[in-house]
Design a protein around this nucleic acid. Structure first.
Lengths: 225, 225
DNA sequence: TAGATTGTTAATCGATTAACAATC
DNA sequence: TAGATTGTTAATCGATTAACAATC
């Protein structure tokens, strides 16, 4: 088994994890790939393949041990320890992201928020004081910051990222809408709500007409992984 | 040309759009697929293919008319008119989303925010008063609501969606983390930040070790489209 | 044992990339 | 015309699905 865990597979792991927690809650100790597939509305082959790629084995005739698989996935995803992160940009999006508690559930702890705008510096945002951007590199060097979340305007994104990458930030989660280019070992994840919004807007504009006519059935609904 | 615009292509259109605005700003009237590709760090064949699928024609030897293409894409994506939307769930995530101004840029206007929790009803969230959830269906029936943005807990998502779909909401943007099942013509877009977060956390946990050793070069950085 | 379920290989599907003929 | 760029077809790549042999 030399096959690598693809990004597509990786993105599905949190879904399994959530379902496993629920199954534990319901008192199940074992679950089959067929059951997992049914509840996640996906193909059971894909479930088995995904889980095999994580090197977790099920038992023929029984299925997968719920508790053990949950622990296994948490370990694999590195969710055990909270990773220190900083947030750059205290604008609307930045404040919005600070408020999102899901970060903590998935391994991130925001321990600093920065901006370049003197208007914003010194303000309180969800219990943290906004600091001047130029102080961020020092914190990075001391504090073992592992992730920088970028919520800056698109024009500023690359410059800020370069600055922080120089200071040693190993991973970026980029919400600026400007795709980042950073040298090799740096991890970059570009997030863009407007990508999805475009799909929604397009389908609303173009599918509604035919949707009014019964007999012209569409199915599916979920976006790409 | 019977080929359909795939979801993958659709998701790239906003990127072209953003770049076109920038190019206009820089005073360009025409742009080649090679230039678009270079600035978006993608393959030029893919650019041509995507644009061809939108039924916009370039001129050999010249390229694509920037202004016309911009208008064309905006029309195609239905960004001309703001679509009335409601937000369900005034918790942390809900408040975060209300603050996100990007919605307006991409065709959505939030014109109501609802919750089931008496604690939250009546509060002000970014200039709007949180209303009781049971009043939402009436607004949907009157107001031509086109999108419901779900920021409710995973457990409540399906129930709320059923309620609103019954009232006639044609499209759902679902941030609850619970994949929705809704009958055929209803459009569902499941959004899940923890999918991305999992990728980030995994790569931080597993790539860092080898990243420290030079000679073991990784490239690439962007996630799947 | 018979039967159910896993793990894995082969077949299919879809999306990206490369090549090139058509166009101006 | 020669040359550059589009539009489209063919080749490649990767991910999903189907099939089935191995396992208990």
């Amino acid at each position: 088994m030399t096959t690598e865990l693809s990004t597509a597979s990786l993105r599905r792991l949190p879904r399994y994890l959530r379902l496993l927690v629920q199954l534990l809650d319901e008192g199940h100790h074992f679950v089959t790939s067929a059951e997992l597939a049914r509840r996640l509305a996906m193909d059971e082959s894909l479930v088995r393949r995904d889980l095999a790629l994580t090197h977790f084995s099920g038992k023929p005739r029984v299925g997968f041990a719920v508790e053990a698989l949950k622990t296994h996935l948490e370990d694999l995803l590195g969710l055990g320890t909270l990773k220190p992160a900083i947030l750059i940009g205290a604008g609307r999006l930045g404040q919005a992201l600070t408020a999102y508690r899901g970060f903590t559930e998935y391994g991130l702890r925001i321990c600093g928020i920065f901006d370049i705008d003197p208007e914003k510096i010194g303000r309180e945002v969800h219990g943290m004081t906004v600091q001047p951007l130029w102080t961020a590199p020092a914190l990075v060097r001391e504090g073992r910051i592992q992730v920088a979340i970028l919520a800056v305007p698109a024009e500023a994104a690359q410059e800020v990222a370069d600055l922080l990458a120089d200071a040693g930030v190993p991973a970026f989660w980029n919400f600026s809408g400007h795709p980042l280019h950073l040298p090799a070992p740096v991890i970059v994840l570009n997030e863009d709500l407007s990508d999805s919004l475009a799909v929604l807007s397009f389908r609303l504009t173009h599918e509604r007409a035919s949707a009014a006519c019964p007999g012209d059935a569409h199915d599916d609904a979920a976006p790409m992984a």
